[in-house]
Design a protein around this nucleic acid. Sequence first.
DNA 1: CGATCGCTTGATCGCTATCAAATCGTGTGG
DNA 2: CCACACGATTTGATAGCGATCAAGCGATCG
Lengths: 244, 244
Amino acid sequence: MRVPCQACPLRAQPAFHDKPDDQVAFIQAMKTDHLTFAPGDAIIRQGSRSAQLFTLFSGWAFRFKEMSDGRRQILNFLLPGDLVGFQNRMFEESPWGVEALTPVEVCVFARSRIWDLYRGYPELAYDVTWLTAHEESLVDENLLTAGRRSAAERVAMLMMHLAKRVAVLRPAVAAGAPFDIPINQSHIADALGLSLAHTNKTLKALEKRGLFRFAAGRLEMVNPKALARLADYFDQPVGQRPLI
Amino acid sequence: MRVPCQACPLRAQPAFHDKPDDQVAFIQAMKTDHLTFAPGDAIIRQGSRSAQLFTLFSGWAFRFKEMSDGRRQILNFLLPGDLVGFQNRMFEESPWGVEALTPVEVCVFARSRIWDLYRGYPELAYDVTWLTAHEESLVDENLLTAGRRSAAERVAMLMMHLAKRVAVLRPAVAAGAPFDIPINQSHIADALGLSLAHTNKTLKALEKRGLFRFAAGRLEMVNPKALARLADYFDQPVGQRPLI
DNA sequence: CGATCGCTTGATCGCTATCAAATCGTGTGG
DNA sequence: CCACACGATTTGATAGCGATCAAGCGATCG
């Protein structure tokens, strides 16, 4: 627990709503742990009963479901500020897992105090709902992608989506700067419902068309306009979001 | 507005949590309208700014996204008791649409009073979050289906899923009774990310294998065990759910 | 240095899309 | 009652996208 929530560097970012002191103080009081994970670590194990509830403080992770024969689908990527774990009911087996992509820090909250939050801090309660609904909208979009887009469209969509999300936290990316993207081709395959081999070929083809450069853990959007057109990507204006 | 919420026949069903009188009274006070739609009607139009917020009171509907060239993905089916519309931010364009499958009645709530709900009724606020999270888990599962399951597995999954959901409201279905299912093959195709022609062939093949009968708007699960095995379907225990 | 991991590429397969047309049931208007 | 239109379903032929299988490469690592 390096820093008190009142001095949270993530909260200081313009991407997030300002919060009154009492709410931040309550968040601080509700926080029970500050955990660290290494890349590849399971933060939540699918099928486990760990009643985790946390905010991703730093690093990247992803939420996924796995079938009994090993087929895996990434549901969405998790970036700093994302709230995770409210979805599963207390004491029920988690229907999905969460895995770290980079070194990750998470702020763990006491589920036992959720009730205090709803009773004492309706604004925070609303934020929890908002974050849940917002995450659902990401999954909605991913479902459209997996269900109805071609392989090239899927890849274009993912690149646009991730660049957009990173740009919220790092403004230079909005202007087209290359950025670190800690995923490999099998993550892309699992996120898009494609095979690894075909993902590779699609990636190469789009790079050859000059749409982006994706190598060595970095992504540069070379022609975002063309990517947006290819993916039929619609820009939802991004306002500030709540941070819990 | 036929019946006061205190006498709501839906609420009387065992599938839903009992609620203290004051909460039901607040729900009643928040309810501004009781609307009716015909099959095929748009309840929410994708891209519209209607700040709808409602509970499906009777009938079936579905939530979907459409691409600019007409490709459509059904995100999930809506059954009585489902809360819809919290997802989109107030006054923003809805990123998805809702369409009625049968004659539908919805209980419309005043968005302007959401804040009173969060401030005055933390239990209801928690219920809103729970319902949102629960809907997300449905979309999660559908994403796994569209991304990683074969055509036959997808169809098996959908049948299991819908039978399960209907069984909660109509116990006889749990025992294997046939039931009305107001969707046609193009809905199935759009829900599963398949073409219409291939949906038809897959449907026929599974019927020939004796797994279910699907005709004339009715579904009978003939061999649910085999369907569950085929779909790699995992039974989440269904407890009571909140109704708002 | 062997082993492992991620990436790349080619050959082939097959699942699913696409295209086309026929059938059937239903409702409508003449 | 019949003719017709229309939507939903069904079926067949064909094409192609993406999966599968296989192999090789390069970098990193214990």
